[in-house]
Amino acid sequence: MLTYTIRRLLLSIPTLIFIAFVIFMLLELAPGDPMSQMPLTIPPEVKEKMRLALGLGEPWWVRFPLWLKQFFIVEPQYWIDSAFGTNFADGAQRIISFQSRSPVFDTIAERIPQTLWVVGMSYVVGVAIALPIGIISAYKQYSVFDQAGTFVSMIGFSVPPFFSGVLVIVIFSVNLGWLPSIYDTTHEVVDWDTFKFQMQQMIMPVMVLALQTTAQVSRYMRASMLDNLGQDYVRTARAKGMTESVVVMRHVLRNSMIPVVTVIALGIPSIFGGAIITEQVFKVNGLGQLLIIALQGSDIPMVMTITFLLAVLIVLMNLIADILYGVLDPRIRYD
């Protein structure tokens, strides 16, 4: 298992470098120019100087390794420095945003908590709703509950977050006036009232994102439970005289969780993608909104870094899913 993990970790390095290269070349080859938004009255020689100041003077085979070095070496050094008060970085050049002229990672660090709160919470809520639905749907297959569960998950697959989000805003903020439509990130939780407000403003974005998760995970849970419920060991367990709850909750559920856990791990990157849209709907100033603003302003270092971070997340989650599968299911041997 350990050798497998190490091999996969090593393999993911060229994968990540290739992905970084693809993103970099896409940004590089694209005819769009970060200077195209500048006024036309700027003389060409000044424009050329501005390009140089942005670091665009060098050809790509100089800038791509430089970006890799900044991402993988310089930025972690700054991290360690700020954590332990050391001085590894020694004033090395960090990845600088074109728009704000400040280090990209500082801006990202400011935005991450909001995104993690909304996205992480929605994932937890979504999975927590999905698992019981899946279990009951499978145990009572073709019952009214099962049919309703199928229908709800069909809706979860079909209604895009930019419509469900807008719909709940119209219903709960505009017509009923119960919940605020804009997520206020400056809000601080100090006492019960502010906590209540935080819950109120979180419930809509969280539930909109959770609907997607629930739809997917409950389907997998149901299918996996159905696979296991028909197995011989279930009959054996019943024949031994175990109560129904022990059979279902202990024997079947444990075995059914194996594929579901990997699905849960694999779904994490895609929920960040969904967060891009949800943050736009609820005006959460998280990572997704940062990406959209950076895109509109042709802020290439910012776009590159955020996109690559998402790619890292995908590769990492694939790895975790594969390893979890091996850990949870002793029948699977990678070596």
Partner: peptide, 17 residues
């Protein structure tokens, strides 16, 4: 393992004109 939605957004923006 490419992040699809951000890449699509990048493509839209850069190849549009």
């Amino acid at each position: 393992s490419l992040p699809i939605l951000p890449l699509l957004l990048v493509m839209m923006l850069l190849f549009r004109d």
